[in-house]
Amino acid sequence: MSNPAGARLATLLRLGLAALFIYASLDKIAHPAAFAVAIGHYQMLPGFLAALLAAILPWLELGCGLALLLNRGVAGATLLVAGMNLLFILAITAALARGLDISCGCFSTSGAGSRVGVTRLLEDLGLLIAAVWLYLRAIAAPRPDFA
């Protein structure tokens, strides 16, 4: 892991993921009710769980984004980011398989936001790979800097 090009790439990916997750969280944090509706469109969760997820998930995105930005608790943050992306991939796949034409709820809670589609799926897959790679780097060089 002492490869300097790898280290530079890791920093770049870490900051990229941080910016993306912080940005993605903001509109959802401001509008939990609208985000709950966006989750409801996926028709995967009972109402109460959709509401709970709408209240918490945006803050988890923000928390992970900040951890990555500050380079603190990167292992935990990348683990959660990978988990979230896995969920997003499952949700989008299920929506596509059932032919739902719904807005994604990814970056914006307004119904005018981007639709779910294969592009979103590939983006999330890329993010998942980046998060897993960063996680593996983080646990290979343990620096348990918080918790």
Partner: peptide, 20 residues
């Protein structure tokens, strides 16, 4: 490793409480 899981759990708890 346990320390990585602890980090994740701490983030999860903090986000959950703040979110609620």
């Amino acid at each position: 490793p346990a320390w990585a899981l602890r980090q994740a759990l701490l983030l999860l708890l903090a986000a959950g409480l703040t979110g609620l």
